[in-house]
């Protein structure tokens, strides 16, 4: 995750998107450290949303067209299942821009290095629309709507940024000498 600037179509969600909506419990029999099951988790990302939402991942696909999610408050509340950030990461999501995050989900995102959890200064889920294309710049911490060039500022990731950039908790712990480098 060295890329700091990316453009993508967005998928917009409201408040309290819980881990059962991100990955329903019937798919927790999949083990994220098994390669083909990791990929399969991507195909189920956000399939627990109410039917009123457009499909996040098309049928028979493992990847989504929406590389960035924009959400309201408390994104990822509920379970500690790491399957949740992994399903999103496996589906090709590179960032979630939310008003706020639930604690364990935020921590799991950092530990796995699957994607960037970014808090916005404004409630962007009321402003942006699913299918729009945006540019996310994690050097300047700005989100730009490409249709009209409007720019929204984001909160700095602070101490968590280098951990995600390194590829997660273990990579960071090795990079910084907290645990020995692997032979």
């Amino acid at each position: 995750m060295n890329e700091r600037i990316f453009e993508s179509k967005i998928y917009v969600l409201g408040d309290n998107i819980d881990t059962d909506q991100i990955i329903p419990a019937c798919y927790l029999n999949l083990v994220p450290t098994i390669e083909e099951e990791y990929a399969k988790l991507g195909s189920y990302a956000l399939c627990g949303l109410p039917e009123t939402y457009p499909p996040f991942v098309a049928e028979n696909q493992n990847k989504t067209d929406y590389g960035i999610i924009v959400a309201g408050r408390n994104f990822g509340c509920g379970s500690s299942r790491e399957h949740a950030p992994i399903a999103l990461g496996a589906a090709g999501v590179r960032a979630v821009v939310a008003e706020s995050f639930a604690r364990i989900f935020f921590r799991n995102v950092i530990a796995t290095g699957e994607l960037f959890p970014i808090e916005a200064e404004k409630r962007l889920c009321d402003i942006l629309i699913t299918g729009e294309t945006i540019r996310l710049d994690l050097d300047s911490y700005e989100l730009t709507r490409l249709s009209d060039g409007s720019v929204f500022s984001l909160k700095n990731l602070g101490a968590a940024a280098p951990v995600i950039a390194a590829g997660g908790l273990f990579a960071y712990a090795r990079e910084t000498g907290m645990i020995p480098t692997r032979q």
Binding site: T33, E82, I104, N108, A111, T112, G168
Partner: peptide, 14 residues
């Protein structure tokens, strides 16, 4: 407190 698999793998080892 509840943690994810990656944190738990870290605890398991350290």
């Amino acid at each position: 407190t509840g943690i994810g698999n990656t944190d738990a793998g870290f605890v398991m080892g350290t």
